[in-house]
Design a protein around this nucleic acid. Structure first.
Lengths: 246, 246
DNA sequence: CGAACGATTGATTTTCATCAAGACCGGTGG
DNA sequence: CCACCGGTCTTGATGAAAATCAATCGTTCG
């Protein structure tokens, strides 16, 4: 781990800590395990996987071996239909678990690519299943994580099925904002690692429409945009825009 | 169970069988459990829940108690945004497990309503979690079922984000076709329990656009439609239409 | 039968995609 | 240093797809 992390780690270091900001350790913490269970879980974590910008974490069709959680960096995940059209199904950022869609068949359905240099921690899926059997609290937490993915996808169906362009972009920004805040960054001022093309693909829009939506939100005074840097003037106003439109 | 089932049940009746077409028993079969495990699982199934047309199976916000599987009938599941707009996230038919999106928070995120008289079997989620710990094969099967839901939602994101109206309707028909076939009905000739409004809502279209898409597919000779009755002339042709358009 | 609802079809408007041109930005090399 | 180049972003003009508005036709059900 020769990478500087923006988030500072606790000075009281737990056992087995060779990864100062380990995402899976933090994930395990949230499961409220006992000290012994925590040790069992932490022992199985593989730390320090690194993916450089543009590298694949996995490709569709590859067998599921390890679930990953992001420590730092950004990933995009996409599926492709039979003729090669790609649809981005999600962007992943620090704290997100990656690869759950492979559980159904044991093979990844998606391509997952690093959008910048990204560090990850992993846990073998078979080991996690074993731990889930031995540690009910972990099992529940894992089910919650799976369920959260389903909830997120349903929310996205609402965005794609019922919202117009500007609302979609607003929801996208609010979503990024919430997640940046959750991992210790500013909720109102951040850097988007994806380009307009990728945002448009994700939201079911063209890149031009995304650009226009940004411009219009900016001219309405709701945001300030400069390429990939965004500042949200007022979160409530942006939420209001999504709300009132229907 | 005072309802006639279209699917005929096996004459060799297993133990505990007070539900001739029990969906959960069939689901458990697919997990390839031992005889003893099968018994443990089947014992926990609650048979014979009935919901009449238009009745709620559950509402958003209610606590998750029981996961259900459909024996006969049809359900629709929808979420609503903060101003009351409803988005249908799925239609459920015999063999489908219902309620998985509640696992994340312990509360249902969705409203689920019977689209016709529907019979279900249930299993308490807490009991299923316990069984998953004791029976690895069941745990795997459950994870697969959860993962399949995620895969399905991602596929739907591709439909909503990248396809035009007629393609969406074609995908919808092909999807119904496959699932009807999977539960023993005709793949090419079936009754759709949902109306145009509901199809449109699900596909991110207006009811008029759905109606026009049906009419156009019919005039192209690909299908025959009469209200809710559909006949697909040739599955491959319909698939071709989806494929070539991009 | 008539009212109510769903489906279809047509006319018009809106939204977004497409096509096209120019601006901006960072990097490279003369 | 500055000109040039490739890529991304923005902005404008135009066209296509779907939404909206509206009328009609069938069915079903009191």
């Amino acid at each position: 781990m020769n990478k500087l992390h923006a988030v500072t780690s606790s000075p009281a270091a737990p056992l087995f800590l060779d990864c100062p900001d380990c995402g899976f350790m933090a994930w395990g913490r949230r499961a409220r395990l006992s000290a012994r269970e925590t040790r069992m879980f932490d022992e199985r974590i593989e730390h320090g996987r690194l993916k450089k910008h543009h590298e694949f974490l996995h490709r569709a069709g590859a067998p599921l071996g390890t679930l990953y959680i992001i420590t730092s960096g950004f990933l995009k995940t996409s599926i492709s239909d039979n003729n090669g059209h790609e649809q981005i199904t999600g962007f992943s950022m620090p704290g997100d678990v990656v690869g759950m869609e492979a559980i159904a068949t044991g093979k990844y359905q998606c391509n997952t690519i690093a959008m910048e240099d990204t560090s990850l921690c992993g846990i073998a899926f078979a080991a996690l299943e074993q731990l889930n059997r031995d540690i009910p609290a972990l099992q529940q937490h894992f089910h919650q994580t799976l369920g959260a993915e389903i909830t997120r996808d349903h929310d996205m169906m609402l965005v794609l099925g019922a919202m117009r362009a500007e609302e979609r972009v607003a929801v996208f920004l609010l979503n990024l904002s919430r997640r940046f805040a959750a991992c210790g960054h500013s909720a109102t001022c951040f850097h988007m690692p994806m380009n307009r093309q990728e945002i448009g693909n994700y939201l079911g829009l063209t890149l031009e429409t995304v650009s226009r939506a940004f411009s219009h939100l900016a001219s309405s005074g709701l945001i300030v945009v400069n390429n990939k840097e965004v500042e949200i003037g007022n979160l409530a106003d942006l939420q209001q825009l999504v709300r009132q439109s229907r």
